[in-house]
Amino acid sequence: MNEVRSRLSKCFAAVFPELIEAEILRATPDSVASWDSLASVTLVSVIEEEFSVEIKPDDLEQLVSFDKVLNYLEQTKSVA
């Protein structure tokens, strides 16, 4: 599981290069100024590519923090 967390952290770091590791773990659209709609789309694309998953458009609204994305990936992977 730590591996998923580490890979996800790299995804966040690529999209938000200004964040340090601790900030990434707490990242939300409210706490990160650069997390706008464009960043959301980029983040989802990076995650889809990195984890070979397809995130449904209806699921996007709930992926609003590092932890929520992590939970989503863990559930998706366990279902798969």
Partner: peptide
């Protein structure tokens, strides 16, 4: 090139 790689090149 993967998107994550491209994103990592740009800030450099």
């Amino acid at each position: 090139m993967k998107l994550i790689e491209a994103l990592s090149i740009i800030p450099k």
